[in-house]
Amino acid sequence: MTLAGRVASELEQMPPSSAVSLQVGVDYYLDAIRAVVDIFSSKRDVDVIYITATISYQAIVDILKALEIDASKVHFVDCISHTMMGASMEGSQVLFVESPTMLENIMLKTEYLMRKSTAKEKLVLIDSVNTLAIHNSNYVLSEFLHIFVSSLRSKNVNTLILTVIEHTTPELNNMVNLVSDSVIRVKEEEEGQR
């Protein structure tokens, strides 16, 4: 089984309304995205709301296109393009948040996309807590994760909280663990063991 396939099959085990900490080594970032978008979401007919604070939505769409991955069921909340002065007009697939510091607006845009979605199942992917931590204090970020994940749970939405292992501090890990039900870890040594 490919790495992306393994991650996708672990995602299959996710109980409803749960939050999962997806910890990926920096070299496995794309495999993790492929697992979520290409294998998991298309197989389960899930609408994915992809909150990107790391790279722009356009860059992710281009990558997915290059990998021939169908991203039609992915809706983006882009928190970084405005900051880079790179946001273009909002399309049907993307909403922009002016800055990764506007955490409430991330929640609001996600709520809007959830209202628009007609899919039975929805998944919110936060990419990534490491990037949000650059722009926000741990106190505010922790508060955000708690309120956001609790709110998503109450609406029967699954949440995936992505962290990049090499860039994560123990404090950040504790913050994510506090709101997560389980952890999926994808790194070289784990891969080697399989």
């Binding site: 955490l103 409430e104 607006n105 609001l108 809007y112 508060e143």
Partner: peptide, 18 residues
């Protein structure tokens, strides 16, 4: 609360303390 004016209506979320 923080609000957003959207085509789906007024949306509200709690203001994060800061």
């Amino acid at each position: 609360y923080v609000l957003d004016l959207t085509q789906a209506g007024v949306l509200l979320v709690p203001l994060l303390k800061g």
